[in-house]
Amino acid sequence: MSRNPTAAAASRAADEVVRFDGVAMRYGRGPDVLKDVSFSLAPGSFHFITGPSGAGKSSLLKLVYLAAHPSRGRIHLFGHDLARAGPAARPKLRRRIGVVFPDLLLLEHLSAFDNAALPLRIAGHKPAEYRNDVAELLSWVGLGGRMDAMPPTLAGGERQRLAIARAVVNRPEILLADEPTGNVDHEMALRIFRLFVELNRLGTTVLIATHDQDLIARSGRPVLHLEHGRITHRAAQPTQPSLGLGLT
């Protein structure tokens, strides 16, 4: 006896962190920047999205971190159908997501420490509960001596690392990063990547949009390749031992 297809889809979505079914997206009345995109991310998975500039990588991430609405199709996040999630549900979903925004979105009038601690404040934690963790995280990303520095005084790579620290500080269930290693040197890129891997090992699902083919190749993680708004192929590379990244 066959199951109801809708119920089966809902059941599948409940087991997945992210599920896209035939999703399209456009800005205003412009052309579709994403066309019929379908994929899913299992809990604890680690994926890259790659593709040429304008392929739709950032738009796809925007849909996942709830900064945009699809024009067609259906998105499930943590088992919730976003079309049915009311405005009250969206902030709660956002708190479960860590995002490294393409333009970083640091608050220029707040110190590096305040910027990094921001998601924890929003989540309602008390300073005494998290300040040691924030300090340790900032030290880990190489900003231990710049905690009271204001973002305008930070170098490009430092700003990027601060944005990453803010994205991971509350140990999100899914981490989305748009070109997270774009402004850092190779050594720091590997260090940041190791942070993502460590978070992934702790159970965080990771989705990174990047052009860094070298990093992708050396990581051995699966890749969603976007071109002209469509996923042209999904390279399901098996997780493999370290290829110089220190990933074990």
Partner: peptide
């Protein structure tokens, strides 16, 4: 992530208070 790093001492971590989200 068990103990606060030494580099945080210059920042005076124990005296830190969250800054207002909007500039004063």
């Amino acid at each position: 992530m068990s103990e606060a790093p030494k580099t945080a001492e210059a920042f005076e971590l124990t005296r830190w208070k969250p800054a207002p989200f909007l500039p004063e």
